[in-house]
Design a protein around this nucleic acid. Structure first.
Length: 991
DNA sequence: GCTCTGCGAAGAGGA
């Protein structure tokens, strides 16, 4: 028997065929041939009618069916059944309710999440929600309520946002206080004296039939606040303001139900949007309890509460709407008529014919931009005539080159997003049992909660989980990783999210956004690694920002898209303040010639400088010196890189020179010695009580450091920097690298495009140029480039390889000492005695310090290359090596991938190339010149390479290297390793 | 064909 796609409530069908039937005198029907079997056999029929035929379903789609199926036929019509398109794509309640007015906006908001930047009203709304939720849970009286409002407004939780919006606590409190009387009025009416309230109409089912009746309701018990529910059944997700046990008083008696309560602090509109939100929450509730059938809409301004009964009709319309939004999100590209590997962007939902509505829309920029750059060229799309001039006007600041850049990048990002979704995606959390997912290391199941939940700070709860049956299996979950906590039962999906705090043999502790202590003690949990494709979201955001009609964006467009020549001023004297001259001169003393040139170039730059840091040329030292010089001159500096590690590398050095800085980013991700400079730690050590206090911290340092994705921080809304330095720039995706550049007047990119480029998953996106870093793109402006060519890492023999392969002989050793350095093996003499017999000479030769480079040919040896090694292109190889090393009780040697070794070095490096076959399909990894370059430039004194020469000769980069090794006779031992040679290796332990 | 780091969320109102 074969595995079905999915059974039960979360059934999953694959659509094989779609046909439309037009019957005489009646509406059209859509007939779907569907299957739940992997092999696509055993088909069933699904008939869509009464409006359901409009669902944009196409062959190949995955759907979920609700309703009745009799003898292999599903009927989805007016009376019964639902079809959910792409049920594993969970859409939020707000996304769907917003799509009522403009679906285009709803779709755009899923791509451009940061475009809604917040306002005074939204912040006040959020705070009011929290006050209300806490006050009803604790049943507060008037004085206590005011106290609570004070505590929340003057607490730390919302300070950052107030700083962001330039608001003060006093004004917020004043606004909040106006609401408090209606809080009490509501509590009086609905919690304490329900008998006094006016009657309301409710529609609920009773004994199988629906009744519409008038009643009084009483909120008897608050069961949860901000309950988070995922429903893979309806393809929905959402957070419910208040989940309450409600008593319904009517003749002849009292009925009890658990119902959702949606709280609004704005205008009392009782609008379709608001009501739809409630109806969607009643559907989410189905996932966890009996169908509530109705919910409530509470307006805090007046304390009025409206009942919302969502009948089947409403639910059906909302599901159809959801399907439509899902369709647009899943079909953002299509294959062009030209052929397979040739994707094109698809049209978005149509532009609404209502310029008034667009006036207040937060997505209007993205909407018009997409229309102008992508859709205008499509025959199938036409805009409402009245909107055409508006779209033209709002995009007139963009040249054709900008529009082209936008559509190309939008396409590449969309393709990459699709690849990411296919590979990762949340759906494994509900589609895969924890036991199965544990094998891949992305999940830990069968966990119970132990000890008390600790509230670490507002909204952060420390939970400790213990494996039900002993030790935790091997897992990829690391401290600082994001996790989703769910119940092992599918009705408790997505209970909370947070970060891993600590991992031990039997326990995992997590900082979660919700307190799970109210759940029954016997709930069994699973912790899933959260694998959101967050980075892509940032890139969409930056792309949109680059197209804005603002001076900063215009400047960057000119430089990046149109390649305007970067400008430089003539004389240092105009940037160098006299009082800084001595300090600067002192710093320069410690640098070599190309490094000094780099400093000068940066100081003279008006736009940007590119520093090529070839391997071992002291990039960190250079950047550190640069920051010191710039701050001595009185400039502010934003220091970033893609990874936290790279940022901290520089900061560790900088800290030694007593240069002050502010380090932004999650403290857990920051190096322990740098943590004291983070916001979190400063908050802990100093008392930060007001926006002014916070402002002081944010403005305290001229140097601010963070990762490229960390520039979403409100500091960067308020502060502009004189210089931005981006390290590892050749490894950062173009649009990610752009993020920090919006915050500064000039920038410096440091990198080496001869080393590894940014990672791109999608082959077509890569083909289209997505792995081109900003560094690489701008390098064509040679006048902006300085090369660091003097290296201090490798001895001359090792250096020569890379010089021949990639750098045209430009690399040079920093000193005689560097050039002649050999490995120090004090125990070698002892070992040599043992190596006397002939079968071991190969090892003797390899270990000889006078032989800095050698290549061990494993062609005939059959010697498992995994017996030796430190770096390798392949993860699997590393696993084998690590396991072997563990057997030898050797854990001091660092074993890692080539990619991870970039930016680092070691005295001895052993490279295991692995490949040992004459198969025709060559792996992609070894074809990359840059990866080989990284691999051979990590060793300072000794580079030992292992691999099968004939196999490797098929790879152009390796072929060139091998040829060189042969011709230079640098290979002390190039002959064939004999079988069983590895037996000798255990002796190396004594080294 | 096997390389992987970033990041808080859904909803806070407005017409």
């Amino acid at each position: 028997s074969e595995d079905p796609l999915m059974n039960g409530l979360n059934n999953r069908y694959c659509v094989l065929e779609v046909s439309i039937l037009q019957r005489n005198g009646s509406d059209a029907e859509k007939h779907l041939t569907v299957t739940a079997s992997q092999s696509l056999q055993d088909t069933e029929l699904c008939i869509l009618r009464n409006g359901w035929e409009s669902v944009p379903v196409v062959p190949g789609d995955i759907i979920h069916l609700e309703g009745e199926c009799s003898s292999g036929t599903w009927i989805i019509d007016e009376q019964s059944g639902y079809l959910i398109l792409y049920p594993d794509l969970l859409l939020s309640g707000t996304t769907i309710s917003k799509s009522i007015r403009c679906m285009r906006r709803a779709v755009l908001s899923e791509r451009f999440k940061g475009s809604e930047s917040g306002s005074r009203q939204t912040l006040v709304g959020t705070i009011l929600h929290e006050i209300f939720q806490q006050s009803v849970t604790n049943n507060l009286a008037q004085e206590k309520l005011e106290e609570l409002a004070n505590k929340i407004v003057y607490g730390q939780k919302y300070l950052k946002e107030m700083y962001h919006l330039n608001l003060r606590q006093t004004e917020i409190l004043r606004e909040v206080e106006e609401y408090l009387p209606s809080f009490l009025k509501w509590a009086e009416d609905f919690m304490h004296n329900p008998a006094n309230q006016n009657k309301m109409q409710l529609k609920l089912s009773n004994d199988g039939k629906t009744e519409d009746f008038s009643c009084k309701v009483e909120i008897a018990d608050i069961l949860d606040i901000e309950e988070n529910i995922w429903s893979p059944r309806f393809g929905l997700k959402g957070k419910i303001d208040v989940t309450a046990r409600v008593k319904i008083h009517r003749q002849p008696g009292v009925q009890c139900r658990v119902m959702p309560l949606e709280v609004k602090s704005g205008k009392e509109s009782n609008s379709i949007e608001h009501r739809s939100q409630v109806i969607l929450y009643t559907m989410l509730n189905l996932e966890r309890r009996v169908d509530p059938e109705a919910g409530f809409l509470l307006y805090l301004k007046t304390g009025t509460m409206y009942p919302v009964s969502g009948g089947r009709m409403d639910r059906r319309e909302l599901m159809k709407l959801r399907n439509h939004v899902a369709f647009y999100l899943m079909h953002s590209t299509h294959e062009s008529a030209m052929g397979r590997q040739n994707s094109q962007l698809a049209a978005l939902p149509p532009v609404v014919d209502d310029s008034q509505a667009c006036k207040y829309c937060s997505q209007v920029h993205n909407c018009f931009l997409y229309g102008r750059a992508v859709e205008q060229k499509m025959d199938s799309v036409s805009f409402p005539p009245a909107m055409v001039p508006i779209i033209e006007r709002e995009t007139q600041h963009l040249k054709p080159s900008h529009l082209e850049y936008f559509s190309l990048w939008y396409l590449m990002l969309t393709l990459e997003l699709q690849s990411g979704e296919g590979k990762k995606g949340y759906k494994n959390i509900w589609m895969m049992p924890s036991l199965e997912r544990e094998k891949a290391g992305d999940c830990v199941g069968n966990m119970i909660r132990v000890e008390e939940v600790q509230e670490i700070s507002e909204g952060e709860y420390l939970h400790i989980f213990q494996r039900g049956n002993g030790t935790i299996p091997g897992t990829n979950l690391l401290v600082g990783d994001r996790v989703v906590v769910s119940g092992e039962e599918n009705d408790l999906l997505g209970l909370a999210t947070g970060y891993v705090n600590e991992v031990s043999v039997t326990k995992i502790s997590c900082l979660l956004d919700r307190n799970l202590s109210k759940l029954p003690k016997n709930v069994i949990f699973r912790l899933d690694h959260e694998e959101g494709n967050f980075g892509i979201g940032v890139t969409f955001e930056n792309l949109s920002k680059l197209m804005k009609d603002s001076p900063v964006s215009e400047r960057l467009r000119n430089l990046i898209i149109d390649f305007h020549k970067p400008r430089f001023i003539q004389h240092l004297s105009s940037v160098l303040p006299p009082e800084a001259k001595e300090t600067v001169a002192n710093i320069l003393k410690g640098l070599n010639k190309p490094q000094k040139q780099a400093m000068k170039k940066v100081l003279l730059s008006k736009d940007y400088t590119l520093i090529v840091g070839m391997p071992g040329t002291g990039k960190t030292t250079t950047i550190c010196a640069l920051v010191r010089i710039l701050s001595a001159c009185g400039f502010s500096v934003l220091l970033t890189s893609f990874t936290h590690t790279a940022v901290d590398n520089i900061l560790l050095k900088l800290a030694k020179f007593k240069v002050g800085f502010l380090r932004l980013g999650r403290a857990q991700k920051v190096h322990p010695d740098i943590r004291k400079f983070t916001e979190e730690e400063i908050f802990r050590s100093k008392s930060i009580k007001s926006v002014a206090d916070l402002e002081k911290v944010y403005n305290s340092q001229a140097v601010v450091a963070t990762s490229c994705m960390g520039v979403n921080h409100p500091v960067f809304v308020q502060r502009q920097f004189d210089f931005c330095i981006v390290d590892e720039a050749s490894q950062i995706s173009q649009l990610i690298c752009l993020g920090p550049l919006f915050c500064s007047k000039r920038f410096v990119l440091v990198g080496d495009h001869q080393q590894l480029p940014p990672l791109v998953l999608n082959a077509e996106a890569k083909e289209l140029g997505m792995s081109e870093s900003l560094f690489k793109r701008l390098e064509q402006n040679q006048n902006a480039v300085v090369q660091l060519t003097v290296q201090y890492r490798m001895n001359s023999k090792i250096m020569s390889l890379s010089n021949m392969l990639m750098y045209e002989g430009k690399l040079e050793c920093g000193s005689e000492k560097v050039s002649n350095a050999t490995v120090n093996l004090p125990n070698l003499i002892k070992l040599e005695l043992d190596l006397a017999d002939a079968s071991k000479t190969w090892l003797k030769n390899v270990l000889d310090p006078g032989t800095p480079v050698c290549f061990l040919n494993t062609e005939k040896a059959g010697c498992n290359p995994s017996d030796i090694g430190i770096i390798s292109p392949y993860r699997h190889q590393l696993k084998t090596i690590t396991d072997l090393m563990a057997k030898l009780k050797e854990n001091r040697v660092e074993v890692n991938t080539v990619d991870k070794y970039q930016g680092r070095d070691k005295s001895i490096i052993i490279v295991s190339f692995v490949r040992n076959s004459n198969e025709e399909n060559l792996g992609a990894l070894l074809k990359d010149w840059r990866r080989l370059n990284v691999a051979i430039t990590r060793a300072k004194h000794k580079l030992i390479m292992v691999g099968c020469v004939p196999s490797l000769s098929h790879y152009p980069p390796l072929e060139k290297l091998l040829c060189h090794l042969q011709s230079e006779a640098m290979i002390s031992f190039f002959s064939v390793l004999f079988s069983g040679a590895h037996e000798n290796l255990h002796m190396c332990n004594i080294l």
